[in-house]
Deep mutational scan, measured.
Amino acid sequence: EINVTSHGEEQAKHWIELAKRMNLDVEVEIHGDKIIITIK
């Protein structure tokens, strides 16, 4: 399980695309200006 804290939408999209390509599950939480991505 990987937790990524992203401070930008572009960076977040990059991680989500990467996870989808690798067929991994992704959870995205938004806390103000921080985007927390959990890849399982």
Rank of each mutant, 00 (worst) to 15 (best):
E1G: 08
E1Q: 08
E1W: 13
E1D: 08
E1C: 10
E1R: 02
E1A: 07
I2L: 07
I2F: 10
I2G: 07
I2P: 06
I2Q: 07
I2W: 12
I2R: 02
N3F: 11
N3L: 12
N3D: 04
N3Q: 12
N3T: 11
V4I: 08
V4S: 06
V4T: 05
V4M: 05
V4N: 04
T5S: 05
T5G: 06
T5V: 10
T5I: 12
T5W: 05
T5K: 02
S6K: 07
S6T: 12
S6E: 07
S6Y: 09
S6F: 14
H7G: 06
H7W: 15
H7R: 07
H7S: 09
G8R: 11
G8P: 09
G8Y: 12
G8T: 13
E9L: 15
E9V: 12
E9Q: 06
E9H: 09
E9A: 11
E10A: 08
E10P: 05
E10Q: 09
E10I: 09
E10R: 08
E10H: 08
E10L: 07
E10K: 06
Q11N: 05
Q11I: 12
Q11R: 09
A12H: 06
A12T: 08
A12K: 07
A12N: 10
A12C: 15
A12R: 04
K13R: 07
K13Q: 07
K13D: 07
K13N: 07
K13P: 05
K13F: 12
H14I: 14
H14Y: 14
H14T: 08
H14A: 07
W15T: 04
W15M: 02
I16V: 08
I16N: 02
I16W: 15
I16T: 07
I16H: 03
E17Q: 05
E17G: 10
E17L: 13
L18P: 06
L18F: 10
L18Q: 04
L18H: 02
L18Y: 13
L18G: 03
A19V: 14
A19F: 15
A19W: 14
A19C: 15
A19K: 08
A19Q: 05
A19Y: 13
A19D: 13
K20Y: 14
K20N: 14
K20M: 15
K20G: 11
K20I: 15
K20H: 13
R21A: 13
R21F: 14
R21W: 15
M22P: 11
M22N: 06
M22V: 08
M22Y: 13
M22S: 02
M22Q: 07
M22H: 07
N23A: 10
N23W: 15
N23R: 11
L24M: 03
L24S: 01
L24Y: 07
L24G: 01
L24T: 01
D25V: 14
D25H: 13
D25Q: 12
V26P: 01
V26N: 00
V26Q: 00
V26S: 01
V26E: 00
V26L: 03
E27D: 03
E27Q: 10
E27T: 13
E27G: 04
E27P: 00
E27K: 13
V28P: 00
V28T: 01
E29L: 10
E29P: 00
E29G: 02
E29H: 09
E29D: 02
E29F: 12
I30R: 05
I30L: 04
I30V: 06
I30T: 02
H31E: 06
H31V: 09
G32V: 11
G32H: 09
G32S: 11
G32I: 08
D33Q: 05
D33K: 02
D33W: 15
D33S: 09
K34E: 05
K34R: 08
K34H: 11
K34D: 02
I35H: 01
I35A: 01
I35D: 00
I36D: 01
I36A: 01
I36N: 02
I37D: 00
I37E: 00
I37S: 00
I37V: 03
I37H: 00
I37F: 02
T38P: 00
T38N: 03
T38R: 11
I39E: 00
I39Q: 01
I39A: 01
I39M: 02
K40N: 03
K40I: 03
K40E: 02
